[in-house]
Simulated scan of single mutants.
Amino acid sequence: MYSDVIELVGVVNLGEDDLGQEIEKEVPRQVFCDRKCIPQNEFFQAGISGIKAAHMFEVSTLDYQDETKVRYNDKIYYVYRVYEKANERVELYCEVKARG
């Protein structure tokens, strides 16, 4: 049973503009999840790689479609690691990126 909701943010390619640049649109989808703490060893390993680990969300394997952004509590997080579990669930390890 899931206890929380996130938005997985996918991207749809709408074609090209007059200059030949791709036009993309973000498409968010709400899915149920369990938010869990980042394990201590994961937090430190991510930090060594320059990643600021923030949250781990567990979602159904059927709900995850290779999205790289997650919106949670009106904040955007980026998926830096995906771990597929045996129980038809996927762990999404998410980071905060500095603006700029």
Rank of each mutant, 00 (worst) to 15 (best):
2 Y>I: 00
2 Y>E: 03
3 S>A: 07
5 V>N: 12
5 V>F: 12
6 I>R: 11
6 I>P: 12
6 I>G: 11
7 E>C: 01
7 E>N: 11
8 L>E: 01
9 V>S: 09
9 V>Q: 07
11 V>R: 09
12 V>H: 09
13 N>Q: 06
13 N>F: 00
16 E>K: 15
17 D>N: 15
19 L>H: 15
20 G>M: 10
21 Q>T: 03
22 E>I: 08
23 I>S: 03
24 E>N: 13
24 E>S: 08
26 E>L: 07
27 V>P: 05
27 V>T: 06
28 P>N: 06
32 F>Y: 13
32 F>N: 14
34 D>E: 12
34 D>A: 00
35 R>N: 05
38 I>S: 06
39 P>C: 02
42 E>S: 07
44 F>P: 02
45 Q>F: 03
45 Q>H: 08
49 S>L: 14
49 S>C: 10
51 I>N: 01
52 K>D: 08
52 K>G: 01
54 A>W: 14
55 H>R: 12
56 M>A: 02
56 M>C: 14
56 M>L: 09
58 E>K: 15
59 V>A: 01
60 S>E: 03
62 L>W: 00
64 Y>L: 05
64 Y>E: 05
65 Q>F: 10
65 Q>M: 15
66 D>H: 15
66 D>V: 04
68 T>N: 01
70 V>W: 10
70 V>F: 10
70 V>P: 14
71 R>T: 04
71 R>Y: 01
74 D>K: 12
76 I>M: 11
80 Y>L: 02
82 V>S: 09
82 V>R: 12
83 Y>N: 11
85 K>F: 00
86 A>Y: 14
86 A>T: 08
88 E>A: 10
89 R>I: 00
94 C>I: 02
96 V>S: 07
97 K>M: 09
98 A>Q: 10
98 A>S: 10
98 A>E: 09
